[in-house]
Write a protein that binds this DNA or RNA. Structure first.
Length: 600
RNA sequence: GGGGCUGUAGCUCAGCCGGAUAGAGCGACGGUUUCCUAAACCGUAGGUCGUGGGUUCGAGUCCCGCCAGCCCCGCCA
């Protein structure tokens, strides 16, 4: 209904101009045009929209707000275009203007969306002329030679959802997996493996990933305590970076092995990603430093080469540096991130129009620093935005970082297994209670969809910036703001279809009489506005919240208004609401990365 | 010491550009099934929006101070 909002706003502006021509002209001349503050109604009884602007205009116009509202309402009353959209505007309280759309208009809007695969969501407007660069979503980013753990959960799920929403809007999206596949950790690992498990370095899968993780831990320990080991590790890094074939082969084997493990998780979660790890930027690191030097930003300090940040002071009020080349000549993650920005924005690289980094909130200052340097180096074209999309920690029931009972980090694989197992146990218990019999493949499909969907939904449904408390019991609960509740709403509609409801053919005119129908109509028509919001604010919980409310409103409708047993013409119109509800829920869930079910 | 984030019902959380009487779910208590899957629906109770100031017609929302928790701060990522 965004187009309706736009039209309405234009009518309000016109009414304001006619009611207060001098003041409007003056305000426009002063470059601060009067605004009637059109927004959604805060309560259903106020109608569809409300304009709050009259209150704020009282002072500049020197009149009581109610009289201003009256003048605007009077102007609206004589506007045919307004009258085509709305019932007569009403003034309430101190000067709010309440607007209610005409029922015919709402019914026609619903009719238009039936069978529309976009459900009223406009494709992103592509500026004419040169083709716009892709939107890059940088997410997931596990480390080679480590297993994916709960720390990768949020980035992976949130990043995928944002990418899906942007793709649906019609943007070209590059989903980049910036895996940690380079740097000192490989020096350590390779050096250690040479001594304890040399076969791992020249034979694929000679050791399994779990062992590799253990070797990694050992290597790290030796690195921290053994100076000889430390220096041979550094030599190993130099060899690797220099392209030594033996080191490169070993590195390649390790990466392949990890990659296959990651892919299992991504396949399971149905997540597409293009790997472009840190190593990709290795040949481009030197140029970063050279470029910063050329633009006069580079300063040598204590043997390290760095850029001093503006507006960020450390101890004793001195500006903080961002180190881009260590005193030993090596590069660090800041260099890699800068090289990535330069490549992603540059005409010889991706030429991106928007770059989104989905990483934990702890890296906020790092990204602020890196973005600032990129900015000052002149790498960011004016229209391009670099956005850090931070999220909070995953916590256990104790409010601390989620760990296993033994105190280890939780492997993602185990976490997903447990979600599916619990969903399966729930389902089997329910089947027994209801004396239903279902095939094994049905049980597996439902358990998998519910279990994985619950994990995703729980993560996406809270505002990502806050820490989030992980709880299998809550996310798998059958009622409340959970994946199973939403999935069930879809299933109920499928039930209507199975019992003979035609969800395909509809009359030209839809007729609604019941308040439950109108509530559903109004909610269904908000979909495009919600998608626009998610695209702008990158907050998936807005979409979750919308879908939850839609499910609630649908369930109320389903409970209180008969569909199949209704007489025509009500029956067809109600079936139309069922159809649009199902399509909206399925599409919405799909954008969250959650497939829907026919039965459950 | 500097910076960031958070603080809303017993618990978990929403709250958009500052708008009308601050919302939801869970939990608690009470009700609804000859009817499309009750994995649902309806109702009741529950609040000093951490705290003190300020801005204004109006503040959970904006600004400043303070308190509490978490996170980051030169050669790890």
């Amino acid at each position: 209904m965004l187009s309706v909002v736009q039209a309405l706003n234009a009518r309000l502006q016109a009414a304001l101009e006619r009611a207060f021509p001098e003041a409007s002209a003056q305000a426009r001349a002063a470059d601060s045009p009067l605004d009637l503050q059109l927004g959604p109604a805060s309560k259903p009884e106020f109608g569809d929209f409300q304009a709050n602007g009259a209150l704020g205009l009282a002072r500049p116009l020197g009149q009581p707000p109610r009289r201003i509202a009256e003048a605007i309402v009077a102007a609206l009353a004589t506007d045919p275009a307004f009258n085509a959209l709305c019932q007569p505007a009403a003034i309430a309280g101190p000067g709010f203007i309440n607007l209610t759309l005409k029922p015919e208009l709402l019914a026609a809007q619903v009719r238009e969306r039936l069978g529309d695969p976009r459900l009223g969501v406009e494709p992103a407007t592509i500026p004419s002329g040169d083709s716009p660069g892709p939107v890059i979503v940088d997410f997931s980013s596990p480390n080679i030679a480590k297993e994916m753990h709960v720390g990768h959960l949020r980035s992976t799920i949130i990043g995928d959802c944002l990418a899906r929403v942007l793709e649906f809007r019609g943007h070209r999206v590059l989903r980049l997996n910036h895996v940690g596949d380079w740097g000192t950790q490989f020096g350590m690992l390779i050096t250690h493996l040479k001594q304890v498990a040399p076969e791992a370095l020249n034979t694929a899968d000679a050791v399994d990933l779990g062992d590799l993780v253990a070797f990694y831990r050992e290597a790290k320990q030796r690195f921290d305590s053994d100076e000889v080991f430390q220096s041979s590790s550094r030599e190993e890094v130099v060899k690797l970076q220099g392209g030594d074939p033996i080191s490169l082969k070993a590195w390649g084997l390790l990466c392949d092995q990890s990659r296959r493990e990651f892919q299992k998780i991504y396949d399971r979660l149905n997540i597409q990603l293009s790997e472009r790890g840190e190593s990709f930027y290795n040949p481009r690191l030197q140029a970063v430093v050279a470029d910063l030097d050329k633009s006069g930003l580079l300063v040598s300090d204590d043997g390290a080469r760095c850029v001093f940040l503006e507006g960020v002071t450390g101890k004793e009020g001195k500006p903080m540096p961002l180190i881009v080349q260590k005193s030993d000549g090596g590069f660090n993650y800041a260099t890699t991130d800068l090289a990535a920005i330069r490549y992603r924005l540059g005409p010889d690289g991706d030429g991106a129009g928007r770059v989104i980094y989905v990483t934990d909130a702890g890296q906020a200052s790092h990204f602020a620093a890196v973005f600032q340097v990129a900015e000052r180096a002149g790498w960011r074209p004016a229209a391009v935005s670099l956005e850090h999309v931070p999220f909070g920690l995953v916590q256990g029931a104790d409010g601390k970082k989620l760990k296993t009972r033994a105190g280890d980090t939780v492997r993602l694989r185990d976490l997903l297994d447990e979600a599916v197992e619990r969903a399966e146990a729930d389902l089997r218990r329910r089947l027994q209670e209801e004396e239903r019999t279902e095939t094994e493949s049905f049980i597996q499909e439902v358990a998998t969809t519910v279990g994985l969907g619950a994990v995703k939904y729980a993560d996406l449904s809270t505002n990502r910036i806050t820490n989030y408390q992980f709880s299998f019991d809550r996310m798998l609960a059958l009622q409340g703001n959970t994946a199973p509740y939403l999935l069930y709403a879809v299933v109920r509609i499928q039930g209507i279809a199975r019992k003979g409801g035609d969800l395909v053919a509809f009359p030209d005119q839809l007729l609604f009489n019941e308040p439950q129908e109108w509530a559903l109509v109004r909610q269904l028509l908000q979909f495009d506005a919600v998608i626009a919001e998610v695209e702008a604010d990158l907050l998936p919980n807005r979409l979750c919240n919308y879908l939850f409310e839609l499910s609630q409103i649908f369930n109320r409708f389903y409970d209180q208004v008969p569909v199949l047993k209704a007489e025509e013409p009500a029956r067809s119109s109600r079936l139309a609401l069922c159809r649009l509800s199902a399509d909206t829920l399925r599409l919405g869930l799909g954008l969250l990365g959650i497939p829907s079910l026919e039965r459950m």
